[in-house]
Design a protein around this nucleic acid. Sequence first.
DNA 1: TATTGTTATACTCTATAACTATA
DNA 2: TATAGTTATAGAGTATAACAATA
Lengths: 151, 151
Amino acid sequence: MSLTRRAPAEQPDLAPLEDKLGFWLRLAQQVSFDTLHRMLGPLNLTPGRLGVLLLIEANPDIRQAVLAEALRIKPSNLTVLLAALEAEGLIRRAEEAGNRRANRLRLTTAGRALLKRGAAAEAEVEKELAEGLDPAGRAALLAALRHIARG
Amino acid sequence: MSLTRRAPAEQPDLAPLEDKLGFWLRLAQQVSFDTLHRMLGPLNLTPGRLGVLLLIEANPDIRQAVLAEALRIKPSNLTVLLAALEAEGLIRRAEEAGNRRANRLRLTTAGRALLKRGAAAEAEVEKELAEGLDPAGRAALLAALRHIARG
DNA sequence: TATTGTTATACTCTATAACTATA
DNA sequence: TATAGTTATAGAGTATAACAATA
């Protein structure tokens, strides 16, 4: 054993955080976002942008307010996301027939193509996050998260 | 049944998000932060500030770099948190004997008193988050989150 | 030269309020 | 008056780089 004591190897007592859902939710979510950004970044996608594309594909002609609520983001923030996606030619906003206030959203062909690649990247992320969890464990985790999120 | 069709009750297809760990991690963490801020706010605490107090109490004379790593925040951001906590008389920073670069952290009496109230509030939050989960389910959730966070 | 902490700054995600235009 | 969307702005939380003081 060494008697040198530079870098005293300090291993603090982490007990106060060990059983805190709040702490581990924060860390797990950070890993999730980091992984998503790493895998989606090369496609010029973010978690938010991918969510928009996913839900528009599943809900053609969805309205912005409905989409924002489904994604659990504010309409004002969705506006910014959509403006960029439209400028990049990935989605189209069309006035609703008979109600010129409302916008109906659709993917373009380019949007559909990019979504395909984004969804594949996202599937990799999900695999990476759940690595080491058996299907039952993963399902239980999802159920618990949904319960906490009141979803 | 009514034939009126204002507010068309649109219920979009949420299937693409339903089984995504990334999505539900984000929502659960948001609920966690919201709840923490709601319960800690009246004490002028935040999740980050409470974490600092908790770990200093468990580790008297801990160094900033060690504390930052334990909390998984950057030293530069910890500096800001600590400056405020010290200005409010909740902690003290003392130069390490024999190494005037390093700071050793301690709670003041006021800090200990506030921590007591903060910890109680935090315990309520944990109860609220885990409400409806049996102890085994909560333990499994914690283990899964820790696994994802690689902690 | 390396370590400890600090400062300044920037970026992302989120939230609120005030506004336009339609209805 | 109420609704759909937009704009501007602000606040957390997080990250990086350059720096001062000390070792």
